[in-house]
Design a protein around this nucleic acid. Structure first.
Lengths: 218, 218
DNA sequence: AAATATTTTTAGTCTAATCTAAAAAATAGG
DNA sequence: CCTATTTTTTAGATTAGACTAAAAATATTT
């Protein structure tokens, strides 16, 4: 059985590797874990010994097959619990992360699967992130980012790429949430900011924000 | 914040002190925690330094006011989660203890209270144990033990004193569960075994079993 | 009450996960 | 391409929680 620390490292290595598919650096892991590079090195060596990561000194690490399986279980649990907190207990999507960070370490396969059933097998968590199935597989999603839409095109907000507290709070403030239908009114070539219409209002968001919103075409 | 180990000790000291109201011995704590007496001593000293237990060398320990408050929060969480697991996820009462042992350490007052609301403020967990309220108070229960009933008296099973796995499995086997109405048919003076009738069957249980069943008069 | 047995504490070790400081390797700039 | 900077690793220390072995206190027997 893995310790919570080991599980957290696996999860972060997964998250960092997801984007680039490349080796993850010791420093980037240390930063994510809010610890020192030396501590990250120690942990990488331990995880490598257990066969959970492929690690080359001074080069970086990536999850092994075995490590990825473990990571996906944790991601699955995290996202199921977030769904539970929002759908059943009435939390809002910007309140659930820290609690799910704790709940994701509860050990019980039966519990995870019964929770999944209780939630009626959700495919995405409250942030629009896909929930891996029992086998740790993520069903491919056909979403794109808002920044890829052109003027007059429409889509439905299905998720956020950046689920940080500050970003979610910002979305709450400007009244954008999952399920909103959004139409592109104007794109400012100078800074890539986008003016959108979500039926109730017309607002301008920065290019950066547009890159962090997942959209599905209607 | 307390570590999980500290929380577990507090909970066990509470459980051991509940019965007798007296000082709890180092050895009995060690046994409950499945550790060595020396480890228990270490922890008692630490908890005493934090003002969570009153501890006298070679004498034993009891929870301080502060320690009891903390213990009750943990007991409350444990029993709420057990209720969730049985009522919402369909576990049976003999399957939930180990999972609740993990869930009881999740830190979030809001979560605990929302869970309580979601479960519609249950007064007792699936084993019939009372659930402390937000202030850590247990609402007095008027139940007695089955062994105190006389021949021909009736009552409803409302809980078990011993919630051990083996006892719960035994009750399942002989088809006794919470809510059953039970009538005393005969008491054998020789060994205090009791023959009972729960409408569907007549069975004989040992005096020890009779001492571990809580009964409410109709 | 002395001798024996049991319980509890102390002293010293161990492991996991962290840290600081210093050494080693990799990268970047002139 | 060689020096400066950054990144990464190693070495050694620390803390929480557990352990063993031995010492100290308490309980039990005779």
């Amino acid at each position: 059985m893995l310790s919570q620390a080991e599980e957290n490292y696996l999860k972060e290595i997964y998250a960092l590797g997801e984007e680039t598919q490349k080796l993850v650096s010791t420093n980037s892991i240390a930063k994510k874990m809010k610890t020192k590079a030396s501590s990250a090195t120690d942990m990488l060596q331990k995880l490598a010994n257990k066969g959970l990561v492929d690690y080359t000194k001074y080069k970086g690490a990536r999850l092994s097959k075995k490590g990825e399986t473990r990571a996906m279980v944790i991601v699955r649990k995290h996202r199921l619990w977030e769904t539970f907190l929002v759908d059943k207990l009435g939390f809002s999507w910007d309140e659930v992360h820290d609690i799910a960070e704790q709940l994701e370490h509860i050990q019980s396969k039966t519990l995870t699967n019964r929770l999944d059933a209780f939630l009626e097998y959700p495919s995405h968590d409250p942030h629009g992130h896909p929930i891996p199935n029992t086998n740790g597989k993520i069903v491919a999603s056909e979403s794109i980012i808002l920044a890829e839409l052109k003027v007059d095109e429409e889509g439905i907000v299905v998720g956020v790429k950046d689920a940080s507290d500050s970003f979610l709070k910002y979305l709450n403030k400007i009244n954008i949430t999952i399920g909103d239908t959004i139409k592109i009114v104007e794109i400012e070539p100078f800074d890539n900011s986008v003016t959108i219409d979500n039926n109730t209002q017309q607002i301008t968001i920065s290019g950066n924000v547009a890159k962090n919103l997942y959209i599905k075409s209607e």
